[in-house]
């Protein structure tokens, strides 16, 4: 399909506002350096509160965490420096390998499903005439209940002896015998993904809906007059215009999903046979349950570079998108 940055499309879509902004950009070039210095000062003042908070409550503990990852500390005993041995140990740890694999599958599947379902719901809600308010509010419910509690509800719904899900599927004729939702290795990770999608989809839907409402209907009309069908209009008009919002939502969702903890902790505890362990739950298990703080820190940190790469890529993509739209 068409790339969102297709030059023809983006020129066609550039709103008059953007063009005007570009004109102002030219004026800006002639500004004096004194203004720039003042900007620099203002920026510093504006950034100060955020940076102070982050330095105190993230940077410092993070540095301690990195150090901890290179010690052989166990709880209550300051460890010796052992370099990257914790990481080497994890690399060869079969449970850790499984964990890494689970995390990637979990993140990829859940994000894909959340995006496509969320987009679908946003499009449909955008088209709806009545009930909008009610639907929007109710769609948000899964996102609002504290995760721990809604996950407990799912645990109850999946309980092999009392499963409502089994009851429904059985009476609809989809299954003959009960499904052990959290028992099989594939079933368990699927169930965990489903719960994550259930929880996270509203975030996508509502934010994308907000994005959709900013799109000028005239553009659609113009495209329709040009003979584009619904599918084409979505891919050539809506999708590229929604791209910035989409990327931000996906970005945050990927991070949250990748580092997910509560859901698995409550639903399966990583079982059966480690088939649902994620980085966070396994790191927690090592660090807290076995008291190997150094190794646990290393396991927590192991997800960092991966996330970092994913995020760098997405940030680059977002910025590139902005450049393509002809802004600054």
């Amino acid at each position: 399909m068409n790339r969102p940055t297709d030059p023809v499309t983006s020129t066609a879509l550039a709103s008059p506002a953007v063009t005007r902004a570009a004109l102002f950009g030219l004026t800006r070039l002639r500004r004096s350096t004194r203004t720039e210095r003042r900007e620099w000062l203002l920026a510093f003042v504006l950034l100060l509160p955020a940076l102070t908070m982050l330095a105190l409550f993230v940077a410092y503990p993070f540095a301690r965490g990195i150090r901890l990852g290179m010690l052989d500390s166990v709880v209550g005993r300051e460890g010796q420096f052992i370099g990257i041995q914790n990481y080497i140990k994890l690399w060869y740890d079969s449970i850790f390998q499984r964990t890494a694999q689970n995390t990637f599958i979990y993140t990829a599947c859940a994000t894909f499903l959340k995006l496509s379902l969320g987009m679908l719901v946003a499009l449909m809600l955008n088209n709806l005439i009545g009930f909008k308010r009610l639907l929007r509010a109710s769609m948000l419910l899964p996102w609002i209940v504290p995760t721990v509690l809604s996950t407990l509800a799912w645990k109850w719904m999946f309980d092999p002896t009392f499963s409502i899900v089994n009851w429904i599927l059985y009476h609809l004729g989809f299954i003959q015998v009960r499904v052990d939702w959290l028992g099989g290795p594939v079933a368990a990770i699927t169930s965990v993904i489903l719960v994550n999608v259930w929880r996270g989809m509203p975030f996508f839907a509502i934010t994308l809906l907000a994005g959709l409402q900013t799109i000028n209907p005239d553009i659609h009309e113009a495209a329709a007059i040009d003979g584009a069908n619904a599918w084409q209009r979505f891919w050539r008009v809506t999708w590229p215009l929604l791209m910035p919002v989409t990327m931000v939502v996906v970005l945050f969702s990927v991070i949250q999903t990748f580092a997910d903890f509560q859901l698995v902790y409550i639903l399966t505890g990583g079982g059966p046979a480690n088939s649902t362990h994620l980085f966070a739950t396994y790191a927690y298990q090592i660090g807290i349950a076995t008291g190997k703080l150094g190794e646990g820190a290393a396991a927590s940190l192991a997800m960092f570079p991966v996330l970092f790469l994913v995020v760098l890529f997405q940030l680059w993509y977002i910025r590139r998108g902005e450049g393509g739209k002809g802004g600054a």
Partner: peptide
């Protein structure tokens, strides 16, 4: 900083 996992941070 958003990427720093909570499971790492809570002890320090």
């Amino acid at each position: 900083t958003y990427l720093v996992p909570q499971t790492l941070l809570f002890l320090p």
